[in-house]
Amino acid sequence: MPEAVLLGGEQTTTAVEWVVFIIAATTTLLGSFGVIMARNPVHAALSLVGSLFSVAVLFLNQGAEFLAAVQVIVYTGAIVILILFVLMLLGIDTEEDLEDEPLRGQMPVAVGIGVLLTASVFALTQLVGFDVVTGTPEVTAAIRDDMPNINQIGRLLFTDFVVATQLAGVMLTVAVVGAVVMARRPREYQPIPEPESMDAPLSLDPTDQGADNGAEVAD
């Protein structure tokens, strides 16, 4: 184990940082509770927006400006809107009865697990305290104040993390293709017909397309 380093002892926290932290932490927690308590999924999605936006404020509070912007653009701007679109399009914005539990005792067990998780993190931070972060600082690159945040991230993305960046690009492409394949309306649910002989080509005649369109209109 590398020698434990007590880090950043000289850093100070301004009063503004504390105030912003307390406000944003409160709204984060309220939004998170809203996500799991709201009966209506649309309300849950809107609570999620509040929670994610507060986390963006916390990123800003910690000097991660680029991440704060990306958080708002990608999460609250794209992901939650996508979820809301699916909610509206599928018409499944039905209320959920949280009291009804098909699996008896599931809810208390779940809450117990949550309390245990929270208690373990709290115990770790309270008992270990400031020694909770150990290791060698500034392994990859030190955070610099004389350079914009986005420049430092971009530099790392195309030097130390270039393989990961390219893999992320491949994965995004795969995800887009997979989403298109899965969300496409399937043709009729019928077994694939056996060809009469190997000479018979697969059916590509336009009447199939017509039937498919008809089904779509009927829906």
Binding site: L7, G8, P137, V139, A141, I143, N149, L156, D160, F161
Partner: peptide, 14 residues
């Protein structure tokens, strides 16, 4: 930020 390392933010990006 506690480790003064930029990699934390890059991983969040991923």
């Amino acid at each position: 930020r506690a480790m003064n390392d930029m990699a934390g933010q890059v991983i969040v990006f991923f």
